[in-house]
Design a binder for these strands. Structure first.
Lengths: 139, 139
DNA sequence: TTCATTATTTAGAATCGTTATAGATTTTGA
DNA sequence: TCAAAATCTATAACGATTCTAAATAATGAA
């Protein structure tokens, strides 16, 4: 059965304020791996009283509790992914665009072997690939 | 045969100023994956006129030319690795310490298969593991 | 419900990492 | 040797993130 957003947050020990629910909802229905600023900008039109500090606090809280994963493709701005099930990311080294890529069994086996060998808590791939848009523009 | 640092830089199209050589030398002889600020702080005692801007400029130039690799373990500060040959990184999710880990053939095969499949420019593992120091302190 | 307590949100200031600017210095090659 | 180009320096500016203190909202006991 599928849990509501509110119940998903409670499950992770997070009190489900409407701001938190809105931010999680945004991440799950817009899988664009946004930055905190993008989340704030895109939500503030429908939530005029939303504060940027709340967005940062919430995303940090989510990251702490494992509700989101973070990545820093450009190294200067943190981006957030609301989908925490196992999948990889293709990152464009030029524009820092992030796309999802599903693992095939081969990948999962390799990751599992490495986790075992290193005694790791988690292992992920980072895949660098110039995205189609940047590839065309650079011609 | 082994190239001097100066020749290594020339090979990548970088003019080998003594600041650039010193920064590359630091990265290669202190494999601590330092931040720009760490590089600046640790070098400025022996190079009193060194400017922080030079460190940032140089590290950015090195990254552009493929002399170093960058990573953002904590997401707020960029770190630099002077060793660009293929190897993985174990990152402590608590203190952001970065350690090297050599790939075994198995890993390399899996990475190569994934690169082929995705048409990627490069693929790396990101291995999360609480380091021994943090593991002990959390007891 | 009412009240006190605690958690959350807000706005703005402060901080920190990084980049931009402009002038000084060094290097290069004619 | 001298002009042109590249590099370095110091500092200002910027952008992302965190901190602070006050306001608001939620909770639970009486």
């Amino acid at each position: 059965m599928k849990l509501s957003l509110s119940e998903q947050l409670k499950d992770k020990g997070i009190r489900p304020s409407w701001q938190r629910i809105a931010i999680l909802d945004f991440l799950l229905s817009n899988r664009i791996h946004p930055s905190a600023d993008q989340v704030y900008t895109m939500l503030s039109s429908s939530m005029p009283t939303l504060s940027k500090a709340t967005v940062y606090n919430t995303l940090n809280l989510f990251a702490d509790k494992g509700v989101v994963k973070t990545m820093s493709p450009s190294g200067v701005e943190r981006h957030y992914d609301g989908v925490v099930s196992r999948h990889g990311h293709i990152i464009c080294p030029i524009c820092s665009r992030i796309d999802d890529v599903d693992y095939i069994q081969d990948d999962i086996d390799a990751l599992d072997r490495m986790m075992e060998r290193i005694d790791a808590d988690s292992v992920d791939f980072v895949i660098n690939r110039i995205c189609d848009k940047c590839r065309h523009e650079s011609i």
